[in-house]
């Protein structure tokens, strides 16, 4: 039970994700970029929150680093690489494409492909004559069925 409370305390974390206004970058476009980057980075001490959503001490520090680097004119990739070098794949909320994550990234294509094959297979197997549209008699029957309780 204590664990639950602990877990929920972490939920409560974001309630305090109110930080120092001075933390923000004066340039609105840069601040926007920093936020987008921050949402790609996982707060390591929270559970599943980005550093933008958490006010854990470490998240604050990481936000500050992101902003410093953005202000220093580094590219998005450079900023992400900087933290990736320190905290590994775990810090990236968008997993990098590697041999280990290939299956993950391929899921949409695989699922859609497998489903399409299934549908095609079913259709091929049932190469029966294409059905005709409902005859008026059938339509009447259908309407009647819909009416009868």
């Amino acid at each position: 039970m204590r664990r639950l409370l602990l877990a929920l305390l972490l939920v409560a974390g974001p309630a305090f994700a109110l930080s120092d206004p001075a933390e923000q970058l004066p340039d609105a476009a840069q601040e926007q970029r920093a936020r987008v980057l921050g949402r790609e980075l996982r707060c390591l001490v929270c559970q599943n929150q980005s550093i933008e959503d958490s006010d854990a001490e470490l998240a604050r520090d990481l936000r500050r680093i992101v902003r410093e680097q953005v202000a220093a004119g580094r590219s998005d990739t450079q900023v992400l690489d900087y933290l990736h070098a320190r905290y590994g794949d775990f810090v990236l909320l968008r997993p990098p494409f590697t041999a280990g994550t290939a299956l993950l990234w391929a899921t949409p294509v695989l699922a859609l492909g497998a489903g399409a094959l299934l549908v095609l297979g079913l259709r091929r197997r049932r190469a029966a004559p294409v059905p005709q549209a409902l005859t008026p008699a059938e339509q009447a029957r259908l309407a009647e069925l819909d009416r009868t309780p």
Partner: peptide, 29 residues
Amino acid sequence: SVAAVVLVGTLYPMFADLVLGQKISVGPP
């Protein structure tokens, strides 16, 4: 297919950890 993506995305970090020993995060992005 959407369900498959959500399912695989949810379970992937756990199984990547278990099978490959890799710690990855699969998040909103």
